[in-house]
Amino acid sequence: MGIQFNVFKGSKNGEIIEGKGYRDAKPTEVIVKISHCGVCGSDEHFRHAEQGLGHEGIGLITEVGSSVHAMSEFRVGDRVGMAWFHKFCGYCKQCITGHQNQCVNSTYFGNADQDQGCFGTAVAWDVSTLYKIPDEIASEDAGPLMCAGATVWSPLYDHGLRPGDRIGVIGIGGLGHLAIQFASKMGMEVVVFSSTESKKQEALAFGASEFHVTKGVETLGSIAKLDALLITTNVNPDLALFLPALAAGAKVFPLTISMEALPFSPLALIGGFLSVIGSGLAPTASTQAMLAFAAKNGVKPQIEKFPMTQVGVTEAMQKLRDGKMRYRGVLVVPN
């Protein structure tokens, strides 16, 4: 049967353009009619590429491929979410050991299916990277969980951290405000660092137990040591400020896309028994656990909504670029 769709794309000059496309469902794919899509900083990296944008899509399945019923529980009418990855192979070592986010044969946003994107009305999507959305989570809140939520969840869930651990979060933005909620509701003690006091009350409301201003500060003083540090800022902070606050064996997670080098000396790592861990989106089982946890514990993004139109997409991406989004933009397909 297939589907025709509209999609908003980048362009060489950075202008958002509207295109059209058509897709049939391959045997392992479903057709999803999009209702909402989160706006992520990673979309900005592809604004000058002639491809469909958007990778935090939420929608309803309207059609399934010929093999879908035999290999999954997805059915027409299911509300589902999509993220960065488009397809996992299912047979490489990483896939069969439950680390699908490291699949060596994966396809993903930016390297495949460039005719479509979740900034649009519909997509064809492989069931290997599709997730059912719990009824307790509104579609407008679900989009940002698919990327931002899964990004901050994985360090907390997949790397041996436990209730009672002290978790430092640098930055209170699209990633940071979700990291605070997840960590606090997982029973961890959340210590937030921000350049100014402007977001202090919001950080405490999200679940932070401590708040420290870093602008113009040469030392963090005698705060209790941190078991992990999540860097969620758009640019790398001066880590010399934070190293003395890390407990022996602490784990550092740089979570935003940055080309800058991290200023770690081997001596700092060896002397503190520190680990610096590259962590992207969570693997499949972990993402499913994240959605279940968010549904049960009321974790949701603070969002601003924009219409899924050329004007709406342009406005949302400009506000994100200007650093004025509080805290995740969500595009809504007009009825």
Results as ranks from 00 to 15, higher is better:
Phe206His: 02
His86Lys: 07
Ile231Thr: 10
Gly207Ala: 04
Met71Tyr: 06
Leu274Arg: 01
Phe273Gly: 10
Ala205Cys: 01
Gln102Lys: 09
Asp141Ile: 02
Met1Gly: 12
Tyr131Asp: 05
Gly38Tyr: 00
Ile3Asn: 08
Ala183Asp: 02
Asn236Gly: 13
Leu204Lys: 00
Tyr131Trp: 14
Asp238Ala: 12
Gly271Leu: 03
Ser67Phe: 03
Gly2Met: 12
Thr121Pro: 13
Gly312Ile: 12
His55Lys: 00
Asp43Phe: 09
Tyr157Phe: 13
Val104Ile: 12
Ala268Lys: 13
Gln288Arg: 13
Val217Gln: 06
Ala261Leu: 00
Lys87Arg: 12
Gly19Glu: 04
Leu331Trp: 11
Ile270Met: 10
Thr309Lys: 12
Ala240Ile: 12
Pro163Val: 04
Cys118His: 09
Pro244Cys: 15
Ala294Ile: 01
Ala124Leu: 08
Phe5Val: 10
Ile16Cys: 05
Arg23His: 03
Leu204Met: 07
Asn111Asp: 14
Val217Lys: 09
Ala250Arg: 11
His69Ala: 14
Lys199Ala: 02
Lys185Gln: 10
Gln288Gly: 03
Cys40Thr: 05
Thr284Glu: 05
Val127Gly: 03
Val313Pro: 06
Lys296Trp: 05
Phe242Lys: 13
Val299Tyr: 06
Leu220Arg: 07
Ala122Cys: 09
Lys200Ile: 01
Ser66Pro: 02
Thr151Arg: 05
Lys185Ile: 07
Thr196Ile: 03
Met308Gly: 05
Ser184Glu: 03
Glu44Ile: 14
Leu274Phe: 01
Val332Trp: 10
Pro334His: 14
Lys251Ile: 07
Gly280Arg: 08
Arg23Pro: 00
Phe109Ala: 08
